[in-house]
C-alpha cells in the first residue's frame, strides 16, 4: 500500500492532470487505486463525471472513520475509485487548525481506507499551511509538477526550505517537469539548471500538449480517450518512472 500526493505550492502546474492520469494507469495495471480530490475546485471529480459532494457530509469526513468509505464512488474504470471533493474543503485549513493533533488529521481520515487499496493518490489544492503539513504527514511520497520557469523554480525552492525548517524528509519529495515546451530555449536552459540544483527530479517530463487540455471537454483521463497519443505515452513513461524509482522501495 502506497500513498502519493500530487502537490505544489503553485497553481495551474498540472497536478490534477497528472493525478487523474496516473491513477487511471495504475488501476489499468491492476492496482486497486483510490484518487482523493482534496481541492474545493473539484477538477479531478469533474473529470470523472462525479458530483462534487461528500455523501457522509463534511463533518463525518473530518472525523474520519468508516463513514468516509460511504462517500467513495466507483469511476467508469476497473479498479479505480474516487473520493470526491466537497465545497467544504475550502475550509480544511481552518477546521484542522481547531482540532487536536491538527497536523495529523488527514492521516486519520485516510488510515481506514488503506487496507482496501494498493495505491492512494491525492490531488491537492495549492497550499503551504497546515493542510500542506497534513499532506506531508499522511503520504509516503510527494510528487511536485515543475514548469520550467523561473517563478516555478523559485516556488519549489521555497517549498524545500519550508520542509527542511519543519523537519519533513525532503528525500520523499520528488518532482517532474510539467507543461514543457522543448522549443523554448528558456525551458531547456532552466531544466538543465534545475537538474543540477535539486535532487529527486524524475527523468520523464510531461510536454505541453493540447490533447491534455481536451480532458476538460472529454471528461476522461487522456490516457483513456487517446490511449495511443503522445500525451498518453508521456504519462505512461512518467508512471513507469515513478514505479521504478519511487515505488520499488515499497510494495504496491
Amino acid at each position: 500500500m502506497t500513498t502519493l500526493a500530487l502537490y505544489s505550492n503553485k497553481g495551474g502546474v498540472g497536478k490534477t492532470a497528472a493525478a487523474v492520469n496516473l491513477s487511471y494507469l495504475a488501476a489499468q495495471a491492476g492496482s486497486r487505486t483510490l484518487i482523493c480530490d482534496l481541492d474545493p475546485q473539484s477538477s479531478a471529480t469533474y473529470y470523472f463525471r462525479v458530483k462534487p459532494k461528500l455523501k457522509s457530509g463534511a463533518k463525518q469526513f473530518i472525523k474520519g472513520g468508516k463513514q468516509v468509505d460511504k462517500s467513495i464512488k466507483g469511476t467508469d474504470y476497473d479498479n479505480l475509485d474516487l473520493l470526491p471533493a466537497d465545497f467544504s474543503h475550502r475550509k480544511l485549513d481552518v477546521t484542522f487548525n481547531e482540532l487536536k493533533r491538527s497536523k495529523h488529521r488527514l492521516t486519520r481520515i485516510l488510515d481506514p481506507l488503506k487496507n482496501k487499496y494498493d495505491l492512494i493518490i491525492l490531488d491537492c489544492p495549492v497550499t503551504i499551511s497546515i493542510l500542506a503539513e497534513n499532506i506531508f504527514n499522511a503520504v509516503d511520497y510527494t510528487l511536485v509538477p515543475l514548469i520550467p520557469t523561473t517563478l516555478s523554480v523559485r516556488t519549489h525552492r521555497q517549498l524545500l526550505s519550508f520542509c527542511k525548517k519543519n523537519k519533513y524528509d525532503v528525500s520523499n519529495i520528488y518532482s517532474f517537469f510539467s507543461m514543457v515546451d522543448k522549443r523554448k530555449k528558456m525551458h531547456r536552459e532552466l531544466m538543465a539548471a534545475v537538474l543540477n540544483e535539486f535532487k529527486g527530479i524524475l527523468q520523464s517530463a510531461i510536454p505541453y500538449l493540447s490533447q491534455i487540455e481536451r480532458m476538460g471537454i472529454q471528461r476522461e483521463p487522456v490516457a483513456a480517450f487517446l490511449p495511443k497519443s503522445v500525451a498518453s505515452k508521456s504519462y505512461q513513461n512518467l508512471w513507469q518512472n515513478i514505479r521504478e524509482t519511487i515505488l520499488s522501495k515499497t510494495t504496491i
Binding site: F48, R49, V50, K51, G74, T75, D76, R219
Partner: peptide, 10 residues
Amino acid sequence: YRILNHNEKT
C-alpha cells in the same frame, strides 16, 4: 452495457 446518468457517468 454501461448504464449512464445525466452526466454520462457509468
